[in-house]
């Protein structure tokens, strides 16, 4: 273990401990817990989008697949009365399966054409929810999607309590991040980066590029589907607009501002920007302008995102030391 990874592991441990103690720290302030839950959703969405990025592309259909998960779970709840515990897995399965089917033609396109084709997929998903009013409730969406209850011998938790849902969101988001961490750290993850670096080269050393792309895309979309299910049962109301291209774009902003190179980036970006967004809530339009300025400045002056700040600072300090010697 190098010095850097040790520090990173330490920071991660502190962050996780902080997240688990947050309800106590904020003395069960419901509003702060709400922000915490929002952060968890945003992290889950940004990291799963980042998993696709490790292969070198960005999917604008990502929020659409989150929507598929949300609608699956919501319809199973309102139609059959199934709880989130079952629906979550089905949401992942449906989103992943849809992603698998669509990705086969989708992966034929590259670069800007992929970006655009994925956008088309996202838009079609949203419009289908909007148009088939009888099934999906049209533009007005689905109401009354209740949070689940956990009834075990000696344990009875109602997740309509904010604290309980906070821990649910935290655990699920943590698992999603962990799964992605394991994928990226494995041999498969290295293959992904090699495809990211050069698709042609990867093909020539015998990597089945299409297979990896399809699997990674489907996995990421399944994880987005789980996020969608959690989102639906927390907000108890969903409509097609929640899952439009802007949702994907905000995730992309989280990744870019946080950093593109490691998993720390999207987690950092999603956390910080969600907090800043909440702080700027009273300011109206300035809030949106602020986001625009932050994105442009990051791309032009901090191309690696916020995660590179410590390294940059170290380099700066090193330079300064050398000079003073």
């Amino acid at each position: 273990m190098t010095e850097n990874t040790k520090v990173a592991a330490g920071v991660w441990l502190i962050a996780i401990a902080f997240a688990f103690l947050l309800p106590v720290i904020c003395s069960y302030d419901k509003y702060i817990l709400h922000v915490g839950i929002t952060i968890a959703f945003n992290i889950a969405l940004a990291t799963s989008m980042w998993l696709i990025w490790t292969l070198g592309f960005i999917s604008f259909a990502h929020a659409g697949f989150m929507g598929i998960g949300a609608y699956t779970s919501a319809l199973l709840f309102t139609g059959l009365g199934w709880s989130l515990w079952v629906n979550m897995w089905l949401a992942a399965a449906v989103a992943g399966l849809m992603a698998f089917v669509i990705s086969i033609p989708l992966m034929r396109t590259r670069a800007v054409y992929f970006f655009m084709a994925s956008w088309a997929v996202g838009e079609v998903i949203k419009r289908v929810f909007a148009y088939y009013r009888g099934i999906f409730g049209g533009w007005d969406g689905i109401f009354n999607i209740q949070p689940p209850k956990l009834v075990l011998p000696g344990l009875n938790i109602d997740f309509s309590s904010r604290v309980a849902y906070y821990y649910l969101a935290l655990v699920c988001c943590g698992l999603i991040v962990y799964v992605i961490h394991r994928i990226v750290r494995s041999r498969t993850g290295m293959i992904y980066w090699s495809i990211h670096e050069s698709e042609i080269l990867a093909q020539h050393v015998g990597i089945n590029v299409l297979k990896h792309k399809v699997i990674a895309f489907s996995t990421a979309c399944a994880l987005a589907g789980v996020t969608g299910a959690l989102y639906a049962h927390y907000h108890t109301y969903i409509n097609p607009k929640t899952f439009d291209i802007w949702q994907s774009e905000f995730s992309l902003v989280h990744i870019i501002v946080g950093g593109l190179n490691t998993l720390n980036g999207p987690v950092l970006g999603a956390t910080l920007l969600t907090v800043v967004d909440e702080l700027l809530r009273p300011t109206g339009w300035y809030r949106v302008i602020f986001f625009g300025v932050v994105v442009i400045l990051t791309v032009l002056f901090l191309p690696g995102g916020l995660e590179t700040v410590p390294a940059r600072l170290r380099a700066l300090v090193g330079k300064w030391r050398k000079r003073s010697d």
Binding site: Y31, H34, T38, Y237, T242, R281, P282, R287
Partner: peptide
């Protein structure tokens, strides 16, 4: 008077109201 932005969306309206009522 304290005003927060909802962006005209349900989720943001919920966040803004939560902050008003609970904080």
């Amino acid at each position: 008077i304290i005003t927060y932005d909802t962006k005209g969306t349900v989720a943001d309206a919920r966040a803004a109201t939560t902050r008003l009522v609970e904080q």
